[in-house]
């Protein structure tokens, strides 16, 4: 085999491989989404038309009514939200959330858009809110007497797109971290009557 011949073979091989990978990726992107039973927020795709969707489910050994009461009352709710997040009620349906983002505090005005006792609560940002967001908490009985499955999810449109999302993530103030930490504190509080602390005030 001449040197020229070998070069041609390698080039043709690389071209064929590129086309094959391209076709495979195109087919993958264009093909119908295979339906499965996984919740949408666990999809590999995290971006839903500019919205990020995150969420988490925990099982808490407590009846739905106690958990609903904890979410519905801002004073109780603030006990589980941590240092980076706080809520206050304005009127009957208005809720203002203060988030400590790396770039400074942001106030997000929301309205309670769903309130089904012992079942579900949802808040949606008002039209001129700083960040577009919808948060929902759903309660359902856990199997085998394990208590209540508490599912919280947040759909949000990050400021400054992906960069804003990563900045929030690194600062520990992204909705996913805030949401999962709030659920863990809620679980601790309702199951043990207290929120665990090492007294060190330091994190990894």
């Amino acid at each position: 085999m001449t040197k020229r011949h070998a070069e041609l073979t390698v080039t043709a091989g690389a071209a064929a491989l590129t086309i094959a990978i391209g076709l495979w990726m195109w087919k993958r992107a264009a093909g119908p989404r295979r339906s499965d039973d996984a919740p949408g927020r666990t999809a590999r795709r995290r971006d839903f038309g500019g919205y990020q969707v995150v969420g988490r489910t925990v099982t808490i050994a407590a009846p739905r009514s106690r958990i609903y009461a904890q979410w519905r009352d801002p004073a109780l709710l603030n006990r589980i939200l941590g240092d980076a997040l706080a809520v206050r009620q304005d009127g009957t349906e208005g809720f203002g959330w203060t988030v400590a983002l790396p770039a400074g505090e942001v106030e997000i005005q929301t309205r309670l858009v769903e309130d089904r006792e012992d079942e579900a609560l949802a808040w949606r940002s008002v039209e001129d809110a700083e960040i577009e967001v919808e948060a929902k908490v759903q309660l359902r009985d856990a199997p085998a007497g394990r208590g209540t499955e508490v599912e919280a999810h947040v759909a949000w449109r990050p400021r400054w797109g992906a960069a804003g999302r990563w900045a929030a993530h690194l600062g520990g103030t992204d909705p996913e971290t805030l949401c999962s930490q709030a659920l863990k504190r809620l679980k601790m509080l309702l199951e043990t009557g207290e929120i665990a602390t090492s007294g060190q005030g330091r994190t990894l």
Binding site: G82, Q181, R185, K187, M188, I195, A196, S198, L204
Partner: peptide, 18 residues
């Protein structure tokens, strides 16, 4: 409650669970 005490869900503070 299952007797698996070393798997307790509530004793590691939220901040260090991650």
């Amino acid at each position: 409650r299952k007797g698996q005490f070393s798997a307790c869900d509530n004793s590691n503070p939220v901040e260090t669970q991650a």
